[in-house]
Amino acid sequence: MDGLGELEAAVMDVLWQASTPLPVREVRDRLTTGRTLAYTTVMTVLDNLHRKEWVLREKNGRAWHYRPAGTREELVARTLRRLLETTGRPDVVLLHFARAASDRELAVLRQVLDEREGGHR
């Protein structure tokens, strides 16, 4: 996921499961990485995720509270869009993707294309 490391992905999982924004300490307490992490480690990961625009943060008293910048699907789609934009040849990349797509993926693509065509008539 857009160069997310294992710990970044684990932090995102915690935030996606939360119903409200979380402070660093609570994110650290909810992580199930199998090892004890320092507060500063989790804080650094959250700062990096904020810089990468995967999380939003808001000040609550003296502490930052973090929440995902979108659903897992929205953020992955945004990542795919950014990757396409960096290739210089998004049409070729899309052709390769379409040729390798499963029947289910192709059906979803057809549905979206049909919806878009219907909206432009």
Rank of each mutant, 00 (worst) to 15 (best):
D91N: 10
L83C: 11
T79A: 14
L113V: 11
V93W: 08
H50P: 13
R35T: 08
E73S: 04
L95W: 13
Y39T: 09
A63V: 09
G61A: 03
E6D: 13
R28F: 00
G61W: 00
P23I: 11
L80E: 08
V92P: 03
T86S: 13
R62F: 05
E73I: 02
T44D: 14
E8R: 02
L75Y: 12
R67E: 06
L83Q: 09
D114W: 05
A38F: 13
E53W: 05
E105A: 11
L31D: 01
H120Q: 15
L46T: 01
V45C: 12
L80Y: 15
D114N: 11
N60S: 15
L4H: 09
G34E: 02
D29I: 05
D103F: 15
V27A: 12
V27L: 06
R51N: 15
P21K: 03
L84A: 06
R35I: 07
E58V: 03
L83I: 15
R28Q: 08
G119Q: 12
T86H: 10
Y66I: 02
T87I: 02
V108G: 05
W54R: 10
R57S: 14
T36M: 13
Q111E: 13
R116Q: 09
W16R: 02
S19Y: 11
E105W: 01
E53Y: 10
E115M: 10
R57D: 13
G3D: 10
P23T: 15
R30S: 09
V24H: 06
Q17M: 03
T40W: 07
S19W: 09
T86W: 15
R28N: 10
V76K: 05
P23C: 12
E6R: 04
D91K: 14
T36L: 15
L46F: 12
V11G: 09
E6I: 09
R62Q: 15
T33F: 04
L84P: 00
Y39C: 03
R51L: 15
R51D: 08
E85G: 13
L83S: 08
D2L: 14
G5Q: 01
G118F: 08
W64I: 09
L80W: 14
F97T: 14
D114C: 03
E73T: 10
L106Y: 11
L75S: 01
